[in-house]
Simulated scan of single mutants.
Amino acid sequence: MVKLQKSIDKRNALIKATIDLVNNNGFHATAMSKIAKMANVSPATIYLYFENKQDLINQTYLEVKSKYTNFVFETYQENSSIKRGFEIIWRRIATFNRNECEYSFFLNQCNNTPMIDEPSRKEGIKHLQPLLDLWTRGKNEGVIKPYTDYLLYAFSINPISFLMMAQKQDEFNLTQEHIDAAFLAAWDSIKL
């Protein structure tokens, strides 16, 4: 049991080191040797858990995406009205981004890089299925604009990520009033 926990701890340390280094240095400047050093393991240990750097990045992305969506959809109920369901999801996204900055920053970088391979990206999108289902229902009921999910995401979800990034870089102080206004703008951008 102790050996299993040590193994889990090492893997978690590698994931954490990957997130920290990617957030501070970018994907390309994050060498496996730096990850191992920060995780306090030998470089060879990485290969007990991951095939290569690509596998490490993809698995880290999917693990963080899973934490993100577990939090985001925890209080969502499928029988909510379209607006209420969207508001619950959107505000949970805002809360996650605000409280889990390192994960949000990492996901933001993953969304804007070719480093994440296509199978991992598709798996990541599956994590958003409750939101995609809500939008489909909203389109079918004539409540949501008949745009692609990519456009709906770009107009309604990406802006809060942008604001969170601006706050992380000390360019903007995101207050509750800003969050409330950003939600209304997000809803207005997708509702019919």
Results as ranks from 00 to 15, higher is better:
121 R>I: 10
50 F>S: 14
100 E>N: 13
107 L>P: 03
92 R>T: 13
186 A>N: 01
105 F>V: 12
87 E>F: 02
28 H>R: 05
32 M>L: 14
127 H>T: 13
171 E>Y: 08
142 G>T: 04
106 F>C: 08
87 E>Y: 02
64 V>F: 09
20 D>W: 04
132 L>I: 14
127 H>Q: 15
87 E>G: 07
32 M>W: 05
55 D>H: 05
36 A>G: 00
133 D>S: 14
54 Q>E: 13
54 Q>K: 14
160 I>H: 11
150 Y>S: 14
93 I>N: 13
122 K>R: 15
105 F>P: 01
47 Y>A: 13
114 P>V: 12
177 E>R: 03
78 E>Y: 01
96 F>D: 04
173 N>L: 04
137 R>G: 02
105 F>T: 09
101 C>R: 04
187 W>T: 02
10 K>G: 03
137 R>Y: 03
116 I>C: 12
128 L>H: 10
103 Y>W: 11
174 L>F: 07
142 G>K: 06
94 A>E: 08
47 Y>L: 14
98 R>I: 03
191 K>Q: 08
166 A>Y: 02
13 A>R: 15
76 Y>P: 01
80 S>I: 08
48 L>D: 07
19 I>G: 03
78 E>I: 03
18 T>A: 10
137 R>M: 03
131 L>R: 03
53 K>M: 09
45 T>Q: 10
93 I>F: 04
28 H>V: 05
80 S>H: 09
117 D>L: 06
100 E>S: 12
45 T>D: 04
10 K>E: 09
98 R>M: 07
59 Q>C: 08
103 Y>A: 12
28 H>I: 06
119 P>Q: 08
5 Q>E: 14
153 Y>Q: 08
43 P>H: 09
118 E>M: 04
190 I>K: 02
180 D>M: 00
111 N>F: 07
138 G>C: 04
126 K>H: 10
81 S>H: 08
120 S>V: 13
89 I>K: 01
11 R>H: 07
171 E>N: 08
152 L>R: 10
111 N>S: 11
57 I>G: 00
90 W>H: 07
102 E>R: 12
105 F>R: 07
125 I>D: 00
79 N>M: 10
127 H>N: 15
43 P>S: 12
39 A>H: 01
181 A>L: 05
20 D>H: 06
1 M>F: 10
66 S>L: 10
168 K>V: 00
97 N>E: 11
126 K>R: 15
6 K>T: 15
146 P>H: 05
52 N>R: 02
22 V>N: 02
64 V>N: 07
188 D>S: 12
90 W>D: 07
78 E>A: 13
45 T>H: 05
174 L>K: 02
188 D>V: 09
42 S>M: 11
133 D>H: 11
178 H>E: 00
77 Q>C: 10
141 E>S: 02
166 A>P: 07
54 Q>R: 10
32 M>A: 09
118 E>G: 01
